[in-house]
Every structure is written in structure tokens, then in C-alpha cells.
Design a protein around this nucleic acid. Structure first.
Lengths: 137, 137
DNA sequence: GTTGTTGCAAATACTTTGCAACTAT
DNA sequence: ATAGTTGCAAAGTATTTGCAACAAC
């Protein structure tokens, strides 16, 4: 149940701990939800932090590579990120009317996917499951 | 069991029937599988057809909008397209080692998705389900 | 003849990269 | 001191768009 600090995690992976990385991480944590780099960049600048877009992109990449963030691509050409919660996996439901992104998890669904993949002689590494929906009329 | 020609379909939707659109459609049909615009463009030029990239992009868009093509985005920033088969739906399994795209369909999975969406008060419009896999070792 | 379509090149949108200055270790 | 990181602007990649010439209806 050890909660490592960002500094510890970065060091363990051979990366350096910098104020910019901490800022990006903190901001993402405070924002919650799913955000693209531009939003993160704007949020940082608004709070008076001096960071470059390039650093945001690079930091996001480092954080995602180390499992701290989860990348979400909805198909509009913009990558969004969310803080990854170790012990909680979920997929997304995207409302076509409002753009809302709703998280969901279904045990049976997860199991079924594994079975399908196994049946084909593969091992499941990760998956993307997005349900594009509309409010029930 | 009426198989409409591309010409008929386009006309019905208020679009014009042009040799370029027919070429793109034919090429996609002959190629089979999943291809991005550049591949379609190249295939066309190799066969001596004079088409512009812009027309390929625009034609693909028209065909996809009218349900003739299915767009597939794997997360590498390139949209791929495949000829849509009216009465056959499938999802994709992407091999991380070889890049192979395997199609699969599972009835239970489809049903389960519907249930989940309903449970949240929505209607399922479409979905993206991609399983990123690795050959069983 | 009208209006949609094409081709070209320029523009766009998001993301990546080269490089010199800088900073964590 | 060394090697990774930053910021900037420039480059990249995939895709879209303005517009004049053109072709479908």
C-alpha cells in the first residue's frame, strides 16, 4: 500500500525529477477527468506556471509510458489523458450529443474479451472499448 | 437482395457519380482489408489513374458517410478504411508484434454492450472495440 | 446552364524534433 | 562535471480547404 511520490517513480525509471513534471502531474490530478495537452497547457499557464507546450507533450509521454496516465483517443484527432488508478480499470461511453465521457466497467465484458483473444491464440495486452451513445429518447 | 451500383447509391444521396469516385471504390474493393488514404492513393496512381490526394480523402469521406466504408482508427494517427459489409459486423484484434488486424465477432459481447448502455439510460449508436494482442508465448 | 467536383497548393491541427541554454544529480 | 530536460521555433504528419477550371446532370 505504498504511495510513491512522483519523484520516486521518476528516479526509479531513470528519469529526472523536474518542477515542470511535477506541475503537469499536479495539474492533471487537480483537473480530474480527461484532458488534451492544450487544456493541460492552458491550465498551467493560467495558474502562472511557465511551461512550454513541448514540455507538456514530453511530460505526458513520460507519465503515460510509466503507467501514471492513460491515453484516450476518441477519434477526433486529439489525444486525451487521465490519471490512471492502479486498481480500477474502466472503459468509456461517449455521448454524441453532449460530448460527455462516462466511465464504465463490466466484469463479464472483461472476461469475455480474454476468452475471445485466447481462442485466437493470442494474449490480451490492452484494449480500447468505446461506446458512442445517445440519450434515450 | 438488390445490389445497387455505386452510381445509384450516389444519386440517391444527391451526389454526383464521377469516374474518380468509381475508381476509389473499385480499388478499395480489389484491395480488400484495411487501408489508409495514402495506400489507396498509391494504388490508384500505380494503376495509372490520375487522381489527387484531396479527391481520395473527399471520396472516402463521402463513401464512409453513406455507409459504404467503415473507418478504423488504431491509435497511430492514421485512419484506415474497409468496405462495409451490410450484414456482417465485426471488431478488431490488432497484433502488437506484426501489426496484423484480425476481425472477430462475438454475439454475447454485442449483447452485453447493449445492456450496459441501456443500464446507463443511453442508446448505443456505434462502438469501437479493439483488442491489442500478442502471440501466445 | 447550374451546381457539384476536381486538382493544386496553401492552410490547418496536433504533435514531434533540433539545438543551444539550462538544471538535476 | 555529466547527461537529461527545457523552451523556442521549425519541421512533420495526416487531413482539410479555397478557388479556378471542369464535368455531371
Amino acid at each position: 500500500m505504498e504511495t510513491r511520490t512522483l519523484k520516486q517513480i521518476l528516479h526509479k525509471e531513470g528519469f529526472r525529477y523536474t518542477p515542470q513534471r511535477q506541475m503537469v502531474w499536479d495539474t492533471l490530478g487537480k483537473m480530474g477527468g480527461h484532458h488534451d495537452c492544450e487544456e493541460i497547457y492552458d491550465a498551467l499557464r493560467e495558474k502562472g506556471n511557465r511551461v512550454s507546450r513541448a514540455t507538456v507533450y514530453r511530460t505526458i509521454e513520460v507519465l503515460a509510458r510509466n503507467g501514471l496516465l492513460k491515453k484516450l483517443e476518441v477519434g477526433d484527432g486529439v489525444a486525451r489523458y487521465e490519471v490512471r488508478n492502479e486498481d480500477e480499470h474502466h472503459d468509456h461511453m461517449i455521448c454524441l450529443e453532449t460530448g460527455d465521457i462516462i466511465e464504465f466497467y463490466d466484469k463479464d465484458l472483461e472476461r469475455l474479451q480474454e476468452e475471445i483473444v485466447q481462442k485466437h491464440g493470442y494474449t490480451l495486452v490492452r484494449h480500447v472499448h468505446q461506446l458512442f451513445v445517445r440519450k434515450k429518447s
